[in-house]
Design a protein around this nucleic acid. Structure first.
Length: 893
RNA sequence: AGGCGCUUAGCUCAGUUGGUAGAGCGUUGCCUCGACACGGCAAAGGUCAGCGGUUCGAGCCCGCUAGCGCCUACCA
């Protein structure tokens, strides 16, 4: 007899197993010795080196771990590759702040020292999240851990850059960009937030150059007027058509600017005339290009007015300049009106500073060819397959179709420095290394570009750079393309699409076949969890309180829909874990003799054994199928109900008498071995979701652990991680057993219902009289001991006719069976009559519905014959039961 | 402004090709029957947001309305 505590303590299991799994190399694909093993691989979405675990990570990691463990147990050569992202801006900000506390800036240190400092920071404080990933139980292969700034990955970055440059897809140019005046760097469109902003719309008059009068333009940013080089109107706007080409005098600057016609202008908005500031507005920039307008930079990189604005404005902050412009327009009588106006403003994703659009010389990546590769792949092969396909496939393709060039340079020090050098005479040399650049340039008087690349440039290469690219390593050949990408929806553009494009470009193959997009865990009010709102739930605290396994089940069942966080949910899965623990506890307490049984399910089996095997195998089938479809929610439900309802509530109870028999016997040993065998397979089925609990229990079971390992891991030190994942043996799926067992379950439930309704004390023994047809008689007779035990009946009689005592509580069952509980002296006849009449009423209501349906000729003719037959059968059944009930009532009168 | 999604039991969510609505928690009653009170047994609870349509039949398909949410966007 093996004794374990009454309550599952997750902490103990969590402390015991992870380190051992890791040390023994279970996480590495090399543990798989089958040379022909199919391959399964996932690369982790690399968390920021500055980050710490939040619910979104825990959610994604749970799902990736479930998939990886499932495939590993199924004999796949499984790799889940971990790593981190250097997170350019975040990390640089982190260290800059630290420096500031010490009283100096990064410029005091200089670039080289600063970068050293960031590395030191990374060593000391970075990667806290890696420890937390261990805590989650994530079966990642730490021997393959990567960091986007590793030398090998940096090499991949340079290689990719050079190739794209050589193919004409990367270029350097002066264009309008998103500039963050606080972080002092350019940002891509995807790193800019659009926020609604209450502001004002100013109506400004621009006088005609050569005559009286003026034209009025509306703007939210009057200060940019200093850089205006035109006013635009819609070519179809009759109010202005005569004015097109006419000259205006730009107030304050006294500059002559033309009126141009452009389709961009919406006649309905404002006055229908737009001031054009090509240097400080993306749309105006485009218009400027179309009309060949001068770009006059009036705002600098610190968001202050430039020298070009003249002595009164130069050096003023952009908002101060706004006030001054308005003041001057008022003085000149050129301010027509000011109205309240709400519009969208661009802010820096990181520091929330208002973005200043300005023209700047930067590196860009042309996206047209890359986009076409991705779109063609999707249209031709349906790759990647998004799950859920709706709406994500369309979200992805729509975005690709409207893709614009990607600004890839950043004015930071932390990151991959752009592999471009300039000669003294301004020639650009793009090369993989300084050596190569010198060769190409024919001189060593070269200066490397100061800028670094967007963090997402290196992330875009992650699925192959981590596997060794550009070298053709074994890992690359084996694990690329990866099997599936699991991610939140907010980085479909930033990351997923870019990996797809670079993968197709450099590898000639997609980086992953499937993209599983997870739902989001919201707070209990349905709001997104965020640091600034402070409404986040720390997964580590939940681990502490309820255990990792319970948390994982909760997260897995979120699936792909947004779900509000509810601690009660975790609590119920904690209870489930405890239920498993106690079911195992029961099995272990009654395990003596079980190990001597070689083949527990050999030979002829009683109903409940055939039934549980059928249920178990159907469960295995469902779990495998649903995991294949990424239906995490469904799998959790399936496992929960199989284990709790089928195994605990019925199978254990049905086996109890035999299993707990006082004296040893072959029957007892066999029953015990069967119980343990079913439990053992259940643990394997649940292991991907609940790694700690299942390992803890599996190790304790009196079974031949080594024999349970999947063939690919033969010889390994036994662990449930490497045990074979149960597959459905369809020979064991037994519909007849299931329906017969269902009859027993119905019978027991009805009797319990009677006991409860009549208030029979739980301790009180009853008599049970069952009348049934020959088939059911045989079923009930074979299970009569169990029926007696579960209904707490002193004795059970079964026969074909219903000669039942008048003083009894009775019920009719499906299949025409009847049951009576004789209760001489206890029965209140009137009450019992009412009870039966209520039953009858229920059936009659159903009958009415069926009558209506079957009375409808259209239904009978058009519905499938099978359906109609089914309803007719049900109708017959009801009639029979109603008749039986009427007889019972009659007998009571 | 467009696009998309959601609205099912008090709460959080499932609902597979249209065929008599499900789970967990909560609620009610009974229960120390030695695996488990983080438990057992039994039960109550729903005009599937509203309106209209298609169909023999709609939570599921189509249209409109309302509320909520998300994403995209070049109305200054």
């Amino acid at each position: 007899m093996i004794e374990i505590p009454k309550t599952y303590d997750p902490k103990e299991a969590e402390q015991n197993h992870y380190a051992r799994w890791e040390e023994r190399g279970y996480f590495a694909p090399e543990i798989n010795r089958d040379p022909d093993a199919p391959v399964f691989s996932i690369v982790i979405p690399p968390p920021n080196v500055t980050g710490s675990l939040h619910m979104g990570h825990a959610l994604q990691h749970t799902m990736m771990d479930v998939l990886t463990r499932h495939k590993r147990m199924s004999g796949f050569r499984a790799l889940w590759l971990p790593g981190m992202d250097h997170a350019g801006i975040s990390t640089q900000l982190m260290v800059t702040r630290q420096l500031k506390k010490e009283g100096f800036s990064r410029h005091d240190l200089g670039r080289e020292k600063f970068v050293e400092r960031v590395w030191a920071w990374k060593q000391e404080y970075g990667g806290q999240i890696l420890k937390q990933i261990r805590r989650e139980g994530a079966s990642v292969d730490w021997s393959r851990e990567r960091f986007t700034m590793d030398e090998s990955l940096s090499r991949a970055v340079r290689e990719a850059f050079v190739r794209l440059y050589e193919d004409g897809m990367i270029y350097r140019g002066n264009r309008i960009v998103n500039w963050c005046p606080n972080d002092q760097t350019v940002l891509s469109d995807l790193e800019v937030l659009r926020e609604p902003q209450k502001g004002k719309l100013y109506y400004l008059r621009y006088p005609f150059r050569n005559r009286e009068g003026s034209i009025t333009v509306a703007t939210t940013r009057p200060e940019t007027m200093l850089g205006d080089t035109a006013v635009a109107v819609n070519p179809g706007d009759e109010r202005y058509s005569a004015l097109i080409g006419e000259a205006l005098t730009l107030p304050l600057m006294n500059r002559e600017i033309p009126i141009v016609a452009d389709d961009f202008v919406e006649s309905e908005f404002g006055t229908g005339a737009v001031k054009v500031t090509p240097a400080h507005d993306p749309n105006d920039y485009e218009m400027g290009v179309r009309h060949n307008l001068e770009q006059i930079a009036v705002i600098d990189q610190f968001a202050r007015m430039t020298e070009a604005t003249g002595p009164e404005f130069a050096g003023l902050d952009r908002y101060k300049a706004r006030d001054l412009v308005i003041e001057k327009f008022t003085e000149l009588g050129l301010l027509e009106q000011v109205v309240d106006y709400e519009f969208a403003i661009s802010k820096c994703e990181r520091c929330k500073t208002v973005i200043e659009p300005l023209t700047s010389t930067q590196w860009f990546c042309r996206m047209d060819q890359l986009r076409d590769l991705a779109l063609a792949k999707l249209r031709k092969d349906g790759t990647p397959h998004f799950e859920p396909q709706i709406p994500y496939e369309k979200v992805y393709s729509d975005w690709l179709e409207n893709l614009r060039d990607w600004t890839i340079s950043r004015q930071l020090w932390w990151g991959h420095q752009i592999p471009a050098w300039y000669t003294a005479d301004g020639q650009i040399i793009v090369a993989r290394s300084f050596e190569e650049a010198k060769q190409k340039a024919g001189t060593d008087e070269l200066t490397q570009d100061e800028d670094v690349l967007d963090t997402w440039f290196s992330s875009a290469l992650w699925p192959f750079s981590t596997l060794g690219w550009p070298d053709e390593t074994d890992d690359l050949k084996t694990f690329y393309p990866t099997s599936v990408l699991v991610t939140a929806r907010d980085i479909i553009f930033l990351w997923v699409s870019r990996m797809m494009m670079t993968g197709l470009k450099f590898m000639g193959r997609e980086p992953f076949a499937d993209v599983y997009v997870t739902g989001t865990v919201l707070d209990k009010h349905g709001q997104r969890m965020s640091k600034t709102k402070g409404n986040g739930i720390d997964p580590l605290e939940v681990f502490e309180k309820y255990g990792v396994d319970a948390t994982r089940l909760t997260l897995a069942s979120v699936g792909s829909t947004d779900t509000r966080w509810s601690e009660r949910q975790v609590e119920s899965y904690r209870n489930f874990a405890n239920k498993i623990w106690n079911a195992a506890r029961f099995c272990l307490m009654n395990s003596d003799g079980a190990e001597s049984v070689a083949d527990p399910f050999a030979g002829e089996l009683p109903l409940h054994d055939r039934w549980i095997l059928s249920r178990l195998n159907k469960t295995a089938r469902e779990v495998n199928d649903r995991l294949g479809q990424y239906d995490f929610h469904g799998v959790v439900q399936t496992l929960y109900h199989f284990f709790w309802d089928d195994f605990c509530d019925w199978y254990i109870e049905l086996s109890k008498a035999t299993v707990t028999a006082e004296t040893d016997s072959p029957e007892r040993s066999t029953a015990r071995a069967r119980l343990i065998a079913v439990l053992e397979q259940s643990l394997r089925l649940m292991h991907p979701f609940m790694p700690y609990l299942t390992e803890e229990l599996w190790q304790k079971l009196p079974v031949q652990h080594a024999q349970l390992l999947h063939g690919a891991y033969a010889g390994a030190e036994p662990t449930i991680m490497l045990a074979s994942f149960p597959q459905c043996d369809s020979a064991l799926v037994d519909e007849r057993a299931e329906s017969e067992m269902q009859a027993v379950i119905d019978l027991v439930s009805r009797v319990r219902n009677i006991r409860s309704q009549i208030n029979i004390k739980p301790g009180e023994r009853i008599q049970l009289m069952i009348a049934a047809n020959a088939d059911l008689q045989a079923v009930f007779r074979a299970s009569s001991d169990q029926i007696a035990r579960l209904t707490r009946a002193a004795n059970v009689s079964i026969d074909g006719n219903a000669a039942m005592p008048r003083a009894s509580a009775r019920a009719v069952l499906t299949g025409g069976a009847e049951v009576a509980v004789p209760l001489e002296g206890l029965i209140d006849f009137a009450q019992e009559r009412e009870r039966l009449l209520r039953e009858k009423e229920k059936l009659q209501k159903e009958r009415e519905k069926l009558d209506a349906q079957l009375g409808n000729q259209d239904f009978v003719q058009r519905a499938p014959a099978e359906k109609v037959a089914g309803l007719r059968a049900r109708l017959g059944e009801i009639d029979q039961q109603v008749a039986a009930l009427e007889q019972m009532v009659e007998a009571l009168s």
